[in-house]
Nucleic acid binder design. Sequence first.
DNA 1: TTGTGTTTTATTGCCTCC
DNA 2: GGAGGCAATAAAACACAA
Length: 328
Amino acid sequence: MASGGRVYGGSNLPPIMLQPSAAPGCPPLDSFYLSGSPPPFLLGSTSMVSFEDVNGSGNSKRSLFRSFDQEEDEYDEYFNQSGKKRRLTVDQLKFLERSFEADNKLEPDRKLQLAKDLGLQPRQVAIWFQNRRARWKAKQMERDYDVLQASFNALKADYDRLSQEKEDLKVQISILSDEFVQKHQGTNMAEAPQALPPENPAAASISEESKQDENSTSPKNGNKGVLDSDSTSTKKREGDNMFDADSHYYISGVHSPHLEHVDSSFILEPDSSDLSQDEDDSLSRGFLPSTPYRLPKLEPGDYSLASSSTSRNFGFPVDDNAFWSWSF
DNA sequence: TTGTGTTTTATTGCCTCC
DNA sequence: GGAGGCAATAAAACACAA
């Protein structure tokens, strides 16, 4: 019994071949051992043929009919080299490989049959399958790793691309904000502040309309998604004059007649670095929060936020020479 | 020939299942 | 409790460069 309390192949013998088998081009021969014959060491060396001998490879000195001296040598070899490992022959390996491909699990009956066919001890067959499964598993893990690596690379490339787009958009927002501030820097302060209170009913009304329009499209200008709510609400504003040039607000201390409740930190430098993806999405998709911020009126063809965008231009017609065309 | 890295065969200990 | 699977590991066999 092996030191783990395990009995291997019904004996504690080293893996010694019992008889020639699986010779190239020849069908495997039955094993005496498995045919109910006495243990190999009792059979004499005639049955103790190494794998190399079986295959006829390794310039074997042995044959099916050997001298007594040879048998004696092999008997000694059995005891003296019991720790030596014998490699399976090419044909035995081919046979085992085919069997493994058919089914990598080894039922007892199949194990015995394989051992019989190959002239191996059942334990050797079991060990071979066990090691083969381990190799297969390692290979499988390699393949899985490669697949995951490729997937990761693709996602990372996509992420980098989107990050770059995001940075470009931030830069454009900054430029537009600067332009806006410069454009209205000299606005007559005297015309100004009739600042409506935050709870201004008109603003709230616009806000509500904006919400209601979020899911509607605007066939008129072909812009959808990103600016739909703003464009449609802007259209409404044109109609009922709820948002006109006489409404004046301030951006960061700069008099602005065009924005309501403008959060300058948002307009001038929205730092979304800490935003969650959802927040990022809301920032880019809606561009402005649904309330109470309002964009100035935008005309078709005026939007050009997408100089860096191709497929992801958020519905903005691309025009590299004009960013936002603020139409009042 | 020899040193070294890799592959293959086999062992050990632990775990699960029946 | 025995049989068998698996992970970790040992060690022999093998490949190959220097």
